[in-house]
């Protein structure tokens, strides 16, 4: 239940982020025992690169504390959608914070919003949408893969979101979002291989007072077909973009500075001049606080296509 609102101490059943380093963190469930493969109930011990953690020991601890591991230490953090996205079990390719932030902004998701999402996938985006629309809005999320829909439903419940979300197993391209949702949504988000097939359903599901639409596609052809369909149905403000986040690597570098002036002095003078010491070490190191890009950057995540359904477009 540690996703619903800010809290100070770890309670039993919380998802907790065990933070070891920028590149190493884990989402663990704060329960004292687990059931192993043989069906036996055993003590919950979590293994990390810095040794093991008896999970029972962190229950009751204040979030943000340092906890000891058998060969080091870690910090326990309350999960946020950002941390969850970096630690969640991948059931599909997921969308990350920079794209998600733009999606929420463009879809104008805020408390009270009714949002439709398809597909649910690993629930990375769903967690952000739920944070943004709770406690007065509702998320309707669809996946065509039954196991994934079930897993997501279970996860949302354990994370404290049960009342704010409905999870559907449904092929929305062929079947739409169900007639109950006609004219119900403020925003529709699609992450589908053929988004154009679901655009007419999105059109139906949006409120008569209008709403916002987004499709996320890895390939440009998907965006092209999606936009054709959007245009046909009277959507406007159609806009496609890419967002790429660049991380800066900050470090203090010692860089060599060489002296070449001494070469202008005749060599024979070298040992007799007062500068002799200096001429023997013409290379010194100077410290710089530097910023650089990592060797590899994300070059592409997907194309985001946004559109507005204007108010009072007849849907018959």
């Amino acid at each position: 239940m540690s996703f619903l609102k800010p809290k100070t101490h770890i309670e039993q059943g919380d998802i907790v982020i065990l933070y070891l380093s920028v590149n190493s963190m884990h989402a663990i469930e704060a329960v004292p025992t687990i059931v192993n493969k043989k069906g036996e109930t055993i003590q919950h011990v979590f293994q990390t690169n810095y040794g093991s953690l008896k999970v029972e020991s962190i229950i009751g601890v204040e979030y943000g504390s340092r906890v000891e591991l058998s060969k080091g230490w870690a910090n326990v953090l309350q999960p946020t959608p950002e941390l969850w996205t970096q630690t969640l079990p991948h059931r599909t390719q997921i969308i990350y914070t920079p794209d998600i932030s733009m999606i929420l902004h463009q879809l104008e998701v805020r408390p009270g919003a009714v949002v439709i999402e398809s597909g649910t996938g690993s629930g990375s985006l769903s967690h952000y949408i739920l944070r943004a629309l709770k406690p007065t809005g509702h998320l309707h999320t669809f996946d065509f893969h039954e196991a994934r829909a079930d897993q997501a439903r279970d996860e949302f419940k354990r994370h404290g979101f049960a009342t704010y979300v409905s999870v559907y197993h449904r092929d929305v391209c062929n079947l739409g979002f169900s007639t109950e949702l006609d004219g119900a949504a403020d925003a529709v988000f699609l992450d589908l291989p053929a988004p154009d097939l679901a655009v007419p359903h999105a059109f139906k599901a949006l409120k008569l007072s209008g709403g916002r639409f987004c499709s996320f596609s890895p390939c440009i052809e998907q965006s092209q077909r999606c936009i054709q369909e959007l245009t046909k149905l009277g959507f406007n403000e159609i806009c496609s973009m890419e967002v790429l986040q660049q991380e800066s690597v900050i470090k203090t570098r010692s860089l060599p500075v060489i002296d070449l002036e001494f070469l202008k002095l005749p060599k024979t003078n070298e040992s007799s001049t007062p500068n002799a010491e200096e001429t023997k070490t013409p290379k010194e190191l100077k410290k710089y606080l530097t910023s650089s890009n990592p060797q590899t950057l994300p070059g592409h995540t997907g194309f985001l296509t946004f559109a507005t359904l204007p108010p009072n477009i007849p849907k018959a």
Binding site: C219, E221, S292, T296, P298
Partner: peptide, 12 residues
Amino acid sequence: NRTHPEVNMSGN
């Protein structure tokens, strides 16, 4: 039907 920028690019 599968045109997109490569997923990784060199940063420097």
